[in-house]
Design a protein around this nucleic acid. Structure first.
Lengths: 139, 139
DNA sequence: GTATCTGCAAAACATTTGCAATTCT
DNA sequence: AGAATTGCAAATGTTTTGCAGATAC
């Protein structure tokens, strides 16, 4: 996705499309993985040497508030960030560390046996071995 | 559960049933909630004044390794700990902060559309408002 | 008696905050 | 110009680590 299209998405959500904001959001949209702040920082300072981690935190928190990005808590102590806010699950491979997205059909969401509870968000996290690592283990 | 029974569980999992280990595991088993390290510490030093947080971290990491305890990452940056390692979900109330357990029937687990992946753990986290807070909001 | 465990203090990280400088319109 | 944003440095909060002393068997 081009920066201009990213700007448009920001404007549509009531966020002023500032240069560094758009850069960070564009990065998340295009990479499609689930980077931590460190990775975002190291990747982006190549093209934007004055970018700081504080700004990355600021922007991410803003984008989360505007529901353009979601936090993923699948790694140890750090947060991962995902520009795909549609309902989907995450699989973390315990061996290679990669995180895989998978879709969950609406009809497949487990019923929550909690009477009168109001559900806002669902997070489905799976851990185990991905195909590659499961195969490698057999050898 | 009595300490003697906790000791037995530890031995069955190949863990030497040391005094402070058993104390911490027994606490988690009996409380049945999802305390953070701070809460465990404050509760247990009442009866075991020489207990340190370092030991709590050490013991928890050992119990996790032995699959007697699982980490729950539903709060901001801190870890919560749960001695119930059977498959179940957690609901976090965004208003009062309480965490509720709920069971998920085996047949209800969503199918994971990832060919050849080996699943070890499933975490299902829901956030929203609990019944009490949902009602309070209406007033 | 020896290996293991514990606990203090310090280190290591991730994230937030205060505030002055910069940028945007 | 004026309001919002940025970035440095410091603060905060959680978890880990190094190592000396204590404990278990």
């Amino acid at each position: 996705m081009r920066i201009e299209d990213t700007n448009k998405l920001l404007i549509d959500s009531g966020v002023r499309p500032l240069r560094k904001r758009a850069l960070i959001y564009n990065y998340l949209l295009n990479k499609g993985n689930h980077p931590n702040v460190e990775t975002i920082y190291l990747d982006l300072i190549k093209k934007e040497p004055t970018l700081s981690k504080t700004t990355i935190y600021n922007v991410l928190n803003l984008l989360i508030e505007k529901n353009l990005v979601q936090m993923i808590k699948i790694e140890g102590t750090e947060m991962r960030y995902d520009a795909d806010v549609s309902p989907h699950g995450h699989f973390k491979c315990a061996s290679c560390g990669r995180i895989f997205d998978f879709s969950i059909d609406e009809s497949e969401h487990p019923k929550i046996p909690l009477e009168g509870f109001e559900i806002h968000q669902r997070h489905y996290y799976i851990s185990g071995y991905c195909t590659d690592c499961a195969k490698a283990k057999l050898n």
